[in-house]
Amino acid sequence: MTPVSPAAKRRFVRILIAVTILYGLFAAVLAFRVVVRQQVVRRHLELALAHDPRRTFASRRAAEAAGHGLIRQLMATSPRNPCGRGPAFQWAQSKGPKPPACTIVIGVRHRRLLVWAYDTQGHRMDTIFERLNPPPRHLL
């Protein structure tokens, strides 16, 4: 095997350092972007959970009316979806595509309102865990 020249050794080390720094910056920018958006989603979820009456309605229709009223109320205060697609809050659809990322969904099950959320990557969030760990009031 041919010995590695000192110039090749230096080049290898420089490439490694450059790759590490560039990747580190990429990860930092990615994390910053995600944390800022996720903070908004978490605040929206916290708002929805705070307004969630958590009681059983007399009928499914009454629960749906309360849910639609809640969405109108929440949309009046926070209409913008932080991921930029669709509204921030929406009514649960039994059919149709999955709600876009950063959306809070409100639906009815067994005459009770149900609130759940989709994170910045469009994955369903752990609502119970979010209830236990509310987001900080202010990031920046």
Binding site: L30, A31, V34, Q38, Q121, H123, D126, F129, E130
Partner: peptide, 13 residues
């Protein structure tokens, strides 16, 4: 592992 709560998932899954 449960992702950090302030981040969630950051790129797809």
């Amino acid at each position: 592992r449960q992702p950090d709560i302030q981040l969630g998932f950051v790129l797809g899954r």
